[in-house]
Measured scan of single mutants.
Amino acid sequence: TETYTFDSEDQAEEFAQRAQKKGYTVEKRKENGKFKVRVE
């Protein structure tokens, strides 16, 4: 499980979609103005 942090929602969304296409489970959340994407 890895967590990635992005400054913009667009970046987080793009990353999450790519990860989902590769078959990963993706969980997105906003925390302290940053966008976190957890991938497993």
Rank of each mutant, 00 (worst) to 15 (best):
E31C: 08
Q20S: 11
A19L: 14
K28H: 09
R29P: 01
V26W: 03
K28R: 10
A19R: 04
Q17K: 12
F15A: 03
K28N: 06
T25P: 07
K36M: 15
F15Y: 04
R38Y: 14
T3W: 15
F6H: 00
S8E: 09
E27S: 13
K28I: 15
F15L: 03
V26F: 03
V39Y: 03
T25L: 13
Q20M: 14
E31K: 03
G33E: 05
Q17P: 00
E31H: 05
E9M: 06
V26N: 02
Q11K: 11
E2N: 13
Q17E: 12
K34Q: 10
E31W: 04
A12Y: 02
R18A: 13
T5V: 12
T5I: 13
R29W: 15
E40L: 15
E13I: 07
T25K: 13
Q20P: 01
Q11M: 11
E27A: 08
V37G: 00
E2M: 15
F6L: 01
T3K: 03
E9V: 05
E9T: 03
F35V: 06
E13K: 05
Q17M: 10
V39G: 00
Y24E: 04
G23L: 02
F6K: 00
V39A: 02
E31P: 00
V39N: 00
F6C: 07
E2G: 14
Y24W: 08
Y4Q: 03
K21N: 12
F6W: 02
E40Y: 14
E31A: 05
Y24G: 05
V39H: 01
V37L: 03
V39W: 03
E2P: 08
A12E: 00
N32W: 03
E14K: 09
F6Q: 00
D10M: 10
A12D: 00
Q11S: 08
G23N: 03
E27N: 09
Q17I: 10
E2Q: 14
E9N: 05
T1Y: 14
K34Y: 10
K21L: 12
D10K: 09
K21Y: 06
A19P: 00
K34E: 06
T5N: 04
F6I: 00
D7F: 06
K34N: 05
D10G: 08
G33Y: 02
S8D: 12
F6G: 00
K22T: 06
K28A: 09
K28D: 02
D7V: 06
F15G: 01
A12K: 00
T3Q: 06
T25I: 14
S8M: 08
R18Y: 09
T1Q: 10
A16M: 13
E13D: 14
T3Y: 12
Q11P: 03
E9D: 08
E13P: 00
F6S: 00
G23V: 00
E27W: 08
K21V: 06
